[in-house]
Amino acid sequence: MAAVAEIDSLVLEFRSRSGRVRALDGAALSVGDGQRVGLVGESGSGKSTLALALGRLLPPNAEHLEGALRVNGKSVFELDHAALRGLRRHELGYVFQDPIGTLDPTMRIGRQIEAVLAGTGKTASIASLLASVGLNDVRRIVRSFPHEMSGGMAQRVSIAIAIAPKPKLLIADEPTASLDASIRSQILDLLVSLCAAHGMALLLLSHDLRAISRYCERVAVMYGGRVIESGLTADVFGRPLHPYTEALLRAAPGQERIGGRIEPIPGLPPVLAGRIEGCSFAPRCTFAVDECRTRRPERTDHGDRSVVCLRATERADAMAGVPPA
């Protein structure tokens, strides 16, 4: 399968007055054509930085140090201004967390949609576009400003704008985090069905593990600026190989027994100042051995799955005999 997006050992740092922060420390991820990939991790793990890097939408203090990032075979960090504009306009679609903040507050919705629809026959195509995201009261919506809409409606409009140019890859960064619970599943259902209908690949960033397991066929788990485990969602969540994935699953409410206690992951996620020797999860890991603190784990493949952990092989062998949880 051809890959829409391919990221290989990407290193990215932010400069600030108080020093440097390494947001991505050798992240690797691949999104196949038409695939739905979930990206999970705590805040600060580098999810959003990775998503923004795909369209080179990073703030000016970000510095690309190493590694390659290709979208549709084009190396994003080597594109000139015009080619980058084309990439952002035609090949990528973004849906962000705060829909009302994403839309221009001074412009009516109709004009904002017109801006992304090149060509003629605008009125009809606006109506069909809005209908495809489940908004039927077209005349009212076209005339309204973003502040006159509910969060769910505004998110539908921003999805309509993102899919209008029929991009190859739709990147949704916590698209439901600021929405009400009862419409979260409607918005995710809509995203997934639109991606299937137009053959778009979806990169869904979320900390809602249940939503990811429901909507995404593959999942990548990020920690400390690296993708530490990736593979089929059923495999990764069913029998996690990386201790962090396991700890994250155990921390989610919903799987404990009556009167049981959920176990939060002890300690705090790291803030990296530079390349780290050793594993960034070692200080919080219950499986860590001395070697974990001094030797940097490299990616190993276990069947269809890649894991960044020195003890992955050991754990995979131990788990081979055990039925999945």
Binding site: E42, S43, A177, A181, H207, D208, L209, A247, L248, A251, A252, P253, R261, I262, E263, P264, I265
Partner: peptide
């Protein structure tokens, strides 16, 4: 706890 990360949710609930 709705706006928090999974692992932080668990800490706050506890």
């Amino acid at each position: 706890v709705s706006a928090l990360d999974v692992s932080v949710q668990a800490q706050i609930l506890n």
